Deep mutational scan, measured.
Amino acid sequence: YKIYPYDSLIVTNSISVKLPKDVDRTRLERHLSPEEFQEVFGMSIEEFDRLALWKRNDLKKKALLF
């Protein structure tokens, strides 16, 4: 996945969300650098992957990456 800054990946309720063209809309968190991922989620990507799907989705919603 290509890395993008968190600010360019957050999704708000506005209709005209302009995400970069090559971003996987269903896995926005994968486009964060490991350092920024840790900062946003408070855990590593590996720890995040071990969580239940509902928990990952809940965290993504709170981080505006859903």
Rank of each mutant, 00 (worst) to 15 (best):
Y1N: 11
K2S: 11
K2F: 07
I3N: 05
I3L: 06
I3D: 04
Y4Q: 02
Y4D: 01
Y4T: 01
P5Y: 03
D7W: 15
S8M: 15
S8L: 15
S8R: 13
L9I: 05
L9A: 00
I10N: 04
V11M: 11
V11L: 13
T12Y: 15
T12V: 11
N13S: 13
N13H: 10
S14L: 12
S14Q: 13
S14N: 14
I15E: 15
I15F: 08
S16L: 12
S16F: 13
S16Y: 09
V17P: 13
K18T: 14
K18P: 13
K18G: 15
L19A: 07
P20V: 04
P20H: 06
P20C: 04
P20E: 05
K21L: 14
K21W: 11
V23L: 06
V23A: 06
V23P: 02
D24A: 04
D24Q: 05
D24T: 04
R25C: 12
R25M: 12
T26M: 14
T26K: 10
R27K: 13
R27P: 01
L28P: 02
E29C: 02
R30Y: 05
R30S: 04
R30E: 03
R30V: 05
H31F: 04
H31N: 03
L32F: 01
L32D: 00
L32G: 00
S33N: 07
S33L: 04
P34A: 13
E35D: 10
E35I: 11
E36R: 03
E36M: 05
Q38D: 10
Q38M: 13
Q38Y: 14
E39R: 14
E39P: 03
V40F: 04
V40E: 02
V40C: 05
V40R: 05
F41W: 01
F41G: 00
F41N: 00
F41L: 05
G42P: 01
G42N: 13
G42I: 05
G42S: 12
M43R: 04
M43C: 07
S44I: 09
S44E: 10
S44Q: 10
I45W: 09
I45S: 07
I45C: 07
I45Y: 07
I45N: 08
I45M: 09
E46T: 12
E47C: 08
D49S: 07
D49R: 05
R50G: 12
R50N: 11
L51P: 00
L53K: 09
L53A: 10
W54K: 10
W54I: 09
W54A: 11
W54D: 14
W54T: 11
K55N: 09
R56T: 03
R56A: 06
R56H: 02
R56L: 02
R56E: 02
N57C: 09
N57G: 05
D58V: 11
D58W: 13
D58K: 12
L59W: 03
L59V: 03
K60P: 00
K60N: 01
A63H: 09
A63W: 04
A63F: 07
L64C: 12
L64H: 13
L64T: 04
L64K: 14
L64I: 04
F66N: 06
F66R: 04
